[in-house]
Amino acid sequence: MASIWRYANPRKFMETSGWLLPGVSILAALCIATGVIWGFFFTGEDYRQGSTVKIVFLHVPAALMAINAWLMMLVASLIWLIRRHHVSALAAKAAAPVGVTMTLIALITGAVWGQPMWGTWWAWDPRLTSFLILFLFYLGYIALWQAIEDPDTAADLTSVLCLVGSVFALLSRYAVNFWNQGLHQGASLSVVDEGAPMDIAYRLPLYFAMAGFALLFIALLLAGTRTEIRARRMQALLTRERMG
């Protein structure tokens, strides 16, 4: 049965996160507001993309966080498997819904941007395809968490899945690159030169939006982990009650 020291670390986490959470949330709101308002109202139109260039202030930060959330889950899973640190497993669990939403935002804003620019909502471009695959990995991960009742078993199995999934997600990224360059390359799709330097007028608000999304992720992660810790404690208490 759970001894009290088992909650010592979560307690420390609750203390620290409770103190951090309001600040991080406010900072996240400020950064997102700055970046998005600046981007939306005070940037000019791109000579090629017109006003659709404004979508970049949502698309890029969301895509960034979609990948970083998975990386964070990978690190948290490793820590859980090696150090058996409960907070770590619960943080990975809390990150998944945020990550899946970010992936969805990146996909949707990308599709909305692609419609006028590429003339199609969806193209099987390597980047788009890898994001769709990442989305599927998130779904599998979340589904596995929800399917298993025992919390420690669920944490163990999802961590193993996260490790194996990371390797295969990376492999898929390269596979998809190979697959598209191989035969289906449509020259019309490479309108956007990702490597081209972006004008400073666009870059500054973009940095704000990126920082804002990152802070938002941290805030939601802290809040979510707090919730999971409470839920876990509740489960432990209920089990103890049932056992008398």
Partner: peptide
């Protein structure tokens, strides 16, 4: 749901 995404690289190649 878990296995099919893992099959992607094999399928592609």
């Amino acid at each position: 749901l878990l296995v099919l995404p893992l099959y992607v690289p094999t399928l592609v190649f």
